[in-house]
Simulated assay, not measured.
Amino acid sequence: MDLLEEYRRANFFFESGDPLGASRLLEPIVEAEPQNTAVRQLLARAYFNSAQLNGAETQLRVLIEHDPSDHYAHHVLGRTLERAGRFREALPHLRLAAAMKQQPDYQDALRRVETWLGKNAEA
Rank of each mutant, 00 (worst) to 15 (best):
24 R>Y: 14
65 E>W: 13
82 E>Q: 13
64 I>K: 04
118 G>W: 13
55 G>V: 12
49 N>D: 15
104 P>T: 00
104 P>E: 04
96 L>R: 10
55 G>R: 11
44 A>G: 04
68 P>T: 06
102 Q>A: 15
35 Q>P: 03
44 A>W: 04
37 T>V: 11
86 R>I: 08
70 D>K: 09
29 I>K: 01
16 S>D: 10
27 E>Y: 01
121 A>K: 13
40 R>A: 07
78 G>P: 05
5 E>N: 11
66 H>V: 11
75 H>L: 06
56 A>S: 00
57 E>H: 02
87 F>M: 13
37 T>N: 10
52 Q>G: 03
3 L>I: 10
94 L>N: 00
19 P>E: 02
71 H>M: 08
94 L>Y: 01
107 Q>I: 01
40 R>E: 01
13 F>A: 07
6 E>D: 15
13 F>E: 08
114 E>D: 09
7 Y>V: 11
53 L>A: 07
31 E>L: 12
99 A>C: 14
19 P>I: 07
49 N>H: 04
112 R>G: 04
22 A>L: 10
70 D>P: 08
55 G>F: 11
64 I>R: 04
75 H>G: 09
79 R>S: 08
17 G>A: 08
87 F>R: 10
87 F>T: 12
45 R>S: 11
35 Q>N: 15
115 T>K: 10
44 A>N: 09
107 Q>D: 09
92 P>Y: 15
57 E>L: 02
25 L>V: 06
91 L>C: 09
88 R>D: 11
121 A>C: 04
109 A>K: 02
80 T>L: 04
92 P>N: 13
4 L>W: 07
94 L>A: 03
112 R>P: 13
40 R>V: 01
52 Q>S: 08
59 Q>I: 09
98 A>K: 04
64 I>V: 02
123 A>E: 12
91 L>Y: 12
30 V>D: 06
17 G>I: 00
122 E>Q: 11
4 L>D: 10
14 F>K: 05
20 L>H: 10
64 I>C: 07
84 A>D: 05
113 V>A: 09
61 R>G: 06
90 A>E: 04
105 D>H: 02
45 R>H: 06
96 L>P: 00
80 T>S: 13
115 T>F: 07
81 L>N: 15
87 F>G: 05
27 E>S: 14
94 L>G: 05
67 D>T: 11
